[in-house]
Design a protein around this nucleic acid. Structure first.
Lengths: 238, 238
DNA sequence: CTCCCGTTTAACGTATACATATTGTCTTTG
DNA sequence: CAAAGACAATATGTATACGTTAAACGGGAG
């Protein structure tokens, strides 16, 4: 049996903890680990050929981003956000992505617009291919948009929210909803390109709302076992 | 010399790394450490009576919140945000705090309003006392407001932004600017209490803008030595 | 006197070892 | 038979040790 999954020793100039962080993050977002899955430091470290120290750091970081829950003395597990968490996330996301649009108006240089359109093309191409890639690109679109504002904090927050949105979508969304319609992205970019602030804001608002509906649609009182039980327990006075 | 600063061993049910995290965070926000101060794991651990492991975790967490800069293989130091960072922070803060107001309208129960007014009274009392306490309370007001939305993500972001704002203020603000005028907080709460959404939004917007001006006022081309040097260097083609 | 390069030193990155807390199970007892 | 307590297994919390990197220093050549 091979001691490591693949890839020989990487350049040590990139800390291992970063590598493990990315691996775990990707695994979680790709739903390789279902929500609630326990993430023991030992097994992960052994599987990845690193010590617990590294895994621990990665888990702490993921916890900071809301992807991993860290229960003291009880181990880490993949986050299982509630429907309420979902609402909270999308409410904040709408505010911040509207700010993204605002920040971008009047500051989108031609090369930036090109980058965006290149991304749209990629999204289109992926639409007929791997659905996993398609979903990933749809999220990346929003991340790219945020990054173009050159506002580091805004970019970081949007990135985090997009990640968590994708968790919400996988938990409560339609089985194979295509996340974001590419056409909505296109019309938004068009409005941005002609510096139509009001239209762009409106489009982004509607777009996020559409995503919200898709992500939380299935949630009309099903599937969120923990949440339902909590409701019943409350009725019983527990 | 005493091996530990004070306080006997605490309950081990609260992880030491949390304690160290809070100590360092407070120290940074109280400006006990100036911006740019190096934070070597060894010395801090020795001083606090914990191992490097603990300090390391705390530093990583602070880095995640933007209070500490973590240069690979070169150690950690207190963040030294630029004026541009300051602008970025306040832009996002305005968007999110406006969202806070929006979320609160129509949902402020009497006990919540009482809590807010109690805080305002505390702010008033502190105004004549310790200026450090006063500044701290002014920030806490915004944190409290955000927490009352019961939106965990929103609350976390606002808390983080308030922390970073205080760093900006200490770096670029007027020497003894009183951060937030308590009166601005009072009028805002009044508007919230009578569910006047438009007025409350407007007041919050103006308030954040006022804070922004106070925090970045001194920055008209002075004090930010590194930034200025960088500008000159750029002119000289360096 | 200045610049370059090998040496030194301090600090980080990582692994490992020990201590401790929690969970599930088994036994015992009413 | 059910419930309470003890024990073992598992996994985390923390400390320490080792290897390596990068900044600091000092000597020699130009």
């Amino acid at each position: 049996m091979m001691p490591k999954p693949s890839a020989a020793n990487q350049n040590p100039s990139v800390p291992k903890s970063d590598v493990v962080y990315r691996i775990l993050k990707r695994a979680i977002l790709d739903q390789a680990f279902a929500a609630g899955t326990k993430l023991p430091e030992d097994s992960i470290g052994e599987r990845l050929g690193v010590s617990r120290t590294i895994v621990r750091q990665a888990l702490a970081r993921l916890n900071g981003e809301g992807l991993v829950e860290l229960r003291p003395n009880r181990g880490a597990c993949v986050s299982h956000p509630s429907v309420e968490d979902g609402h909270d996330i999308f409410v904040v996301r709408r505010a911040l992505e509207t700010l993204v649009v605002d920040s971008l108006i009047g500051r989108l240089t031609p090369p930036k617009i090109e980058a965006l359109e290149a991304h749209l093309d990629a999204e289109d191409k992926a639409r007929v291919g791997d659905p996993s890639t398609s979903i990933h690109l749809a999220g990346e679109f929003h991340v790219l948009l945020a990054r173009l504002t050159e506002n580091a904090i805004l970019s970081r927050y949007v990135t985090e929210l997009v990640s968590r949105s994708s968790m919400i979508l996988s938990l409560y969304g339609r089985p194979h909803s295509s996340d974001c319609a590419v056409s909505e992205h296109r019309t938004l970019i068009a409005a941005l390109a002609r510096n139509d602030r009001e239209k762009a804001r409106e489009l982004m608002g509607h777009h996020i709302e559409a995503i919200t509906v898709r992500a939380l649609l299935k949630s009309k009182g099903e599937d969120d076992l923990a949440h339902l039980l909590a409701a019943y327990a409350r009725e019983e006075g527990l």
